[in-house]
């Protein structure tokens, strides 16, 4: 038996129609499942959208989640990923008075860079595995980040 509350990534292909996202989120809340993060965007040149849901639970719970998702009428496919490439993006705002060289070097190590600079603040982005984004966000705490936004994961099976 795997860890009872292991992190799992599920991708769901759904018909891109009204209220389809509510169907998914209602299912999670109604049955007491967690959503750690959720991203959704249309799949180019199709009538479908792709959701990437990060959740947690035992093998049995995850099996139920995938089956219940399948049961929803507008759901085409559900992938519970085992071997995947997963990325997440984060944007962070710093006061311009912080050590920009340090921040910039750190960003580079995490697939990122400065994307905007103005009189008082700079905005940087990083895009990496969620675990590494997490590390990065811990590392930059000393530079007094003013605002952090994470995109949530997107994933593709290898």
């Amino acid at each position: 038996m795997q860890d009872e509350n292991a992190r799992r990534v599920i991708s769901v292909i759904v018909v891109n129609e009204a209220s389809v996202l509510s169907r998914i989120t209602d299912l999670f809340s109604g049955r007491g499942y967690n959503i750690t993060s959720l991203t959704v965007a249309p799949i180019p040149n199709s009538k479908y959208s792709r959701l990437t849901i990060v959740t947690s639970g035992s093998v049995r719970v995850i099996e139920q989640i995938t089956k219940q998702l399948h049961k929803l009428i507008p759901v085409l496919k559900v992938y519970e990923h085992a071997d995947l490439v997963e990325k997440e993006m984060a944007l962070i705002k710093f006061p311009v008075t912080e050590n920009i060289t340090d921040i910039s070097t750190l960003c580079a190590a995490y697939n990122g860079k400065i994307v905007n600079a103005s009189e008082n603040i700079i905005i940087v982005m990083v895009a990496d595995e969620p675990k590494r984004v997490e590390n990065f966000l811990n590392l930059i705490q000393r530079y007094n980040p003013k605002e952090i936004v994470r995109s949530g994961s997107v994933a593709l099976e290898r």
């Binding site: 049995r60 099996e63 139920q64 089956k67 219940q68 399948h70 049961k71």
Partner: peptide, 8 residues
């Protein structure tokens, strides 16, 4: 007929 009922 409902896969979600099996092993629930």
């Amino acid at each position: 007929i409902d896969p979600a009922s099996i092993s629930k």
